[in-house]
């Protein structure tokens, strides 16, 4: 064996090719195949009406999943999404014109709802980074706090949103495109720019890829980790407001199911849960797959609960497959 054999053994050249295919091309192919399949299987799938409803369904999931992508790239996780959405939706509705109190802050209420999410993100980030608690544990706790706050605000009956111009944001459309979808596109654009051009975006990849090296290079990692959590919280806040706009009420269970679906969307898009690999763009594909799948399966009459089970399996399979080549005999993964 010559030394060059040892040197040129950069690990997993073939694997990288495979990952590149399934990481970027694969999900897109899957999406096209799914659309084609459901168009053939159901006469209603490829119609204008269903297209619009697909877009609406996609919008909120996309915003949640985009936010989640930022912490998953760090190699962390945010389980507080549903609680944050619940709190945000209620803060928003209770500050806008509603049937519960005399408040009528209009667009300021939207900002308050979104900021509620940002605050949760800040809390998550600070607790995780400065007290060194694993992120899933922190966010398990803060998620419960979010649900709790929402429950307190909820007070037994869902407050209804009475502001007509805001309600139009939820129900209306612009040139056939639902306004919620336009909001989602704006969020996506901003997220893409943040990920490509800002320190929090770029350092996120480096932290997720190799935190030890980042530390040695003297970068204030903590700041960028906290900022990433703030981005995720903010996105959850936006999603909470969007969900309230869509339903016309603030509700404790308004985020129900989004956590799971969003994690699946991020993972399906090709962002690895170990961190360092992936991106917001991929999450768009992943979220689209999930939305098409959910919509299409219902159209062809599949029990929606089976989907929950399938999503669970997808998460397990995704981590198992991406991590398979890293297995070693002596390795401690908790």
């Amino acid at each position: 064996m010559s030394r060059s054999d040892l040197v040129s053994s950069a690990p997993g050249v073939d694997l990288r090719k495979i990952q590149r295919l399934f990481g970027t091309g694969g999900p897109l192919v899957a999406l096209v195949v799914l659309v084609a399949f459901f168009s053939l299987a159901s006469s209603t799938f490829f119609t204008l009406g269903n297209g619009s409803s697909l877009l609406t369904q996609l919008s909120i999931l996309l915003v949640v999943a985009i936010g989640l992508t930022f912490v998953i790239i760090l190699g962390s996780l945010d389980l507080s999404i549903e609680g944050v959405m619940a709190s945000s939706s209620l803060v928003f509705v209770l500050l806008a014109a509603n049937d519960r109190n005399d408040s009528d802050l209009g667009f300021l209420a939207v900002i308050a709802g979104v900021l509620t999410g940002s605050l949760f993100g800040l809390l998550n980030g600070v607790l995780h980074v400065h007290l060194k608690i694993p992120s899933f544990m922190v966010t398990l706790g803060t998620g419960a706090i979010g649900i709790g706050i929402a429950t307190v605000l909820f007070g037994g009956r869902a407050p209804r949103l009475m502001d007509d111009s805001l309600r139009d944001l939820g129900f209306g459309s612009l040139g056939g495109i639902p306004k919620l979808a336009i909001i989602a596109v704006i969020v996506l654009t901003i997220a893409l720019l943040v990920q490509r051009f800002t320190r929090v975006g770029r350092y996120g990849y480096a932290i997720g890829g190799d935190e030890q090296v980042m530390k040695l290079s003297g970068v204030n990692i903590n700041r960028y980790k906290v900022l990433s959590f703030v981005l995720t919280g903010t996105a959850s806040g936006i999603a909470g407001v969007m969900a309230a706009l869509q339903l016309g009420v603030g509700d404790v269970t308004i985020g129900g199911g989004y956590l799971f679906t969003a994690i699946t969307a991020v993972v399906l898009g090709g962002t690895a849960l170990v961190g360092g690999i992936g991106g917001v763009g991929r999450t768009l594909v992943g979220a689209a797959i999930i939305t098409v799948l959910a919509n299409g399966l219902i159209l062809i009459g599949v029990n929606p609960y089976v989907q929950v089970a399938v999503q669970g399996l997808v998460i397990v399979l995704a981590v198992a497959v991406t991590g398979w080549s890293l297995r070693k005999r002596v390795r401690a993964i908790k």
Binding site: F197, R199, R202, Y205, A206, G209, D210, V213, M214, V219
Partner: peptide
Amino acid sequence: QSLVTSVSVAENIFLGEEGRGVRGGVFRW
């Protein structure tokens, strides 16, 4: 080796010390 493999060569060379490469928090690629 002290390189972050998940990002580009350029980012690695200036990791944390981008100087003119980042202005106002925005990367000038």
